[in-house]
Structures are given as C-alpha cells and as structure tokens.
Design a protein around this nucleic acid. Structure first.
Lengths: 151, 151
DNA sequence: CAGAATAGTTAGCATGGCTAACGATAATCC
DNA sequence: GGATTATCGTTAGCCATGCTAACTATTCTG
C-alpha cells in the first residue's frame, strides 16, 4: 500500500533527524525511551521493561547498565524473588528525561512553525490516526498478554 | 507545540511496531531506505544520497559498501568528475527492495486497511508535509553560502 | 602552477539490536 | 528433602548504524 510506504519513510526520516538532538543531550534514544517508561510508569522489573520496549532482555540489560552508569536509574533486588531486578529512575534521571524530551520536541516544533494552521491540523489528525490504528490488536493474532498501549 | 509532541510519539510508536518486521526481511532499515532512493530516484552520487538520507558521507559510504557486497547496488566513476561516485541499484537490488518493503510495511498496511479513503489521504498528506519540513535548512543557523551539497 | 575547495574513504568510537551460553534462584515433582 | 525443570538476568560475541577526525584524490581558482 502506497500510503503505508510513504508514512514509513516519513517516520524514519523524522526520527533520524531528531536523533541529532539526542546526541547533544548526551543520552541515546533507547536509553531515553526506557527511562521514560521508568519515570512515567514507576518501578518495574527488567524483563517487563524489555517487553514494554519490545527488545530482548540482554539488550535491556545493557541499556539499563548505561543508565545506571550515568546515575539516571538504579537497580534493586526484589525481596520476594531473588532472580528479579527492580529498576527505578533516579531524580537526576527524571530531570534528564524531561530536558531531553523538551529538546526533541522543540527541534521538531521549530520546523513545523512555517506551516499553515490547516497543515498543522493535518499532522495532528494523522498522529491521532496512527496512534489509533496501532492500538488495535495485532491482526491475526491471539488475544494474549500483549497490552503495551504505549505511553 | 502540542502537534510536535503528538507527532513525535506517533512516529516512535509506529517504528517500534515495525522494527520486528525488519529482522525477517534480511536487510537493515538504513540499507533498505537508501536502496529505495536508488530504485525510485535513479543513479545519484554518494554525497547526494547521504544528503537525501540525512546521514553523513562516511555513514553512507559504509551503507553503500554493504549494498555492494550484497550485490544490490553498484558504483561507477563519474566521467566528468573523477571525485564523484555514481551509485545505481542492480536488478537484484530492485527485486530485494520490493520484497523487503512489502514485508516491512505489511503489518502497517494491514492496520491501515480499515481506514476510509479520506483518512488515508490525510496520512499521505502528512507524510509529504513531514518530508518537506525535514528538507528545509536548519532554522536559526547561520546562513553561509554553503548550501550543503544542495538537493 | 600552487593552494583551496570538494568528494569519498578509512580509522576509531559509541549505541543498540540479536542469539547462545551461563549462573542463580524459584518452582515442581517424585 | 533432594533432583529436576523453569524462569530471570547477565556475559560474550556478532552485526548494523550513527558520528568525527584525518587522509587521498580530484577539481577549481587565483
């Protein structure tokens, strides 16, 4: 479908551009995204965080290691289950998250500024449509433990 | 700006959903994206391709090396300018592109299917707007006569 | 013709995906 | 209770993709 294709390309290029803001904020996109789950969702185990971010546990293990090294998140053992690790954002983590997010949004907003109100409306409507279709259940899949409605 | 925020989130969620499809296509998203420029846009120099893909020349150099190694694109010297390299998709490249794209956007297309034609039009227009604003020069940067390889 | 500008490449670093293999802990099954 | 099995996370090692700095080769310019 041509629309799916163009939308796909546009999303790739959009996020690729915003990556540059990440570089100046000193935190990569995977860390920023995981951190946002911790800040807005509260403490969670590593496995659940990996599932929420749709990555494998080893990947999340390394992302968390980076966050910990930077003092943005902390690990704690679960007293009831010694295998699990409970992750939580630190105060500095919350601060950095909000700052990085603002920076990305500001960069995008600057580019949208020359658009006409009608065009902005089109973008807003498109964003709404995208979120809506993504919220639907996976086509031709079981109604299992998917959840992850996004943030 | 609220629109920027919503668009940002929508793009993140969209690509996160599609990331899994990448793995099965046998070609990474950067290569797929660059290859698509070659297939649909025809022969082009490396620098222009890098600009179109919003990455730096060394990055594109390596992406092209991968495409070449896989037999999906070919380099040729520009007879008029010995510094430039002209890139072109091979037949195999075009074949792989179409197959990969189909696979990559299959999930998205399935999700868009229930939308009304007018809504699909909104999404197409939004994609076009995004690509356009991304191609503008950086706002609030000094306007040297650089033009950055133009477009 | 000498020097500046331009196009690509190479080298090296960081991030972020993955699988396979390995503990360590918990749950289950005689 | 002890052996087996299942689950959780980490480690090791692979590959892709971003970047800057520094280099070569070519072209343009003064």
């Amino acid at each position: 479908m041509a629309v799916a294709d163009r939308l796909h390309s546009a999303a790739i290029h959009l996020l690729r551009r915003l990556r540059r803001e990440d570089a100046t904020s000193g935190i990569g996109s995977a860390r920023l995204s995981a951190l946002s789950v911790l800040v807005f969702g509260g403490p969670v185990s590593l496995g659940r965080l990996a599932a929420a971010e749709q990555v494998r546990p080893p990947t999340m293990s390394r992302i968390v290691a980076g966050l910990e090294r930077a003092g943005l998140a902390a690990r704690a053992g679960d007293p009831r289950d010694g295998r699990q690790v409970v992750l939580q954002a630190t105060r500095a983590g919350a601060r950095v998250l909000h700052r990085g997010r603002r920076r990305r949004i500001a960069a995008l907003a600057a580019r949208l500024r020359p658009l006409a109100p009608r065009q902005l409306g089109t973008l807003a409507e498109a964003a709404e449509l995208i979120e809506r279709v993504l919220r639907r259940r996976e086509p031709s899949r079981h109604r299992g433990a998917v959840a992850h409605t996004g943030r």
